[in-house]
Design a protein around this nucleic acid. Structure first.
Lengths: 144, 144
DNA sequence: AACGAGAATAGGAATCATTATCATTATGCA
DNA sequence: TGCATAATGATAATGATTCCTATTCTCGTT
């Protein structure tokens, strides 16, 4: 997706944030991933290009700019992925064994079902929903 | 729920694990809570009764025995609550502002809808689902 | 093209939650 | 009662993440 690059560049420019090479490397690594990645995993890929402290700072900046979204996974590690306005709305398959998280995008009819459940659950009015996340926990093909 | 006590005692005995006073204190604190609590929060309540290191070990033992379930929340803190076979299956309303997590139990028809969505999403067979968690993100009545 | 102000980086130190260690104490059973 | 084992608690260690500070880079201005 060369398109992602442009959208990110535009968003950062609007926010007065520079799209430096380090940050570009982070965005590229996240674009290449098929699910949320931890800082450690990203650092493994980017090792020389981006030192760990800079990686964390870049993720923080990108998260503030809403280009990247953080998720909280097992063993206290935080995982990051491109925000849904870049990737499209999706849910997660979480492996109970190895902790890997993969994205899954439901077909429109299932997504509609989910949304109607969310709405039904919050009609009472005490809580105003802004979004939802379905996490399906189980075992990935590797850990079967 | 004096009943919880007995169920927990039974489960631990079956597993050959002692239901010590420290562990009992942890279970009581979790029973009294109306949502998932972090180790730090629990320690605030139990301060003198259970030192932090013992608290963590108790939570670990109880989690292994499947009496307690851990959830991963914001800022790398883990929250613990009684497992669903003690509390009933439920989902979470997560406030984007204050971070509070409330339990919500869907009526049977909505829960059935959820389950059928999960099954439809995983029929391809690459991933074997063991459970699911729906998190509805939004703003609680306090933070409106 | 050089300048200067603010932004960004690198690397290490510091912090926070959590886990491991180990000597001591308590428990249940023969 | 006495022993084998489980549990405890104080402390040290770990690991992820954040903070700090000096240096480097970028961009707009001249």
């Amino acid at each position: 997706m060369a398109n992602t690059e442009q959208l990110v560049a535009q968003r950062l420019t609007e926010s007065g944030i520079r799209y430096s090479t380090g940050r570009r490397a982070v965005i590229e690594a996240l674009s290449a991933a098929d699910g949320p990645r931890s800082a450690a995993e990203l650092h493994r890929d980017l090792a020389e290009a981006v030192p760990l402290s800079s990686l964390y700072r870049s993720l923080s900046v990108l998260t503030d700019a809403d280009v990247v979204t953080m998720h909280h996974g097992s063993k206290g590690v935080t995982r990051y992925e491109l925000s849904e306005w870049l990737t499209g709305h999706h849910h997660h398959l979480v492996c109970l064994s190895c902790g890997t998280v993969d994205d899954i995008t439901p077909p429109p009819d299932l997504e509609a079902d989910l949304e109607s459940v969310v709405i039904s659950l919050t009609v009472s009015g005490r809580f105003s929903p802004k979004g939802h996340a379905l996490e399906i926990e189980g075992f990935c093909s590797e850990c079967a």
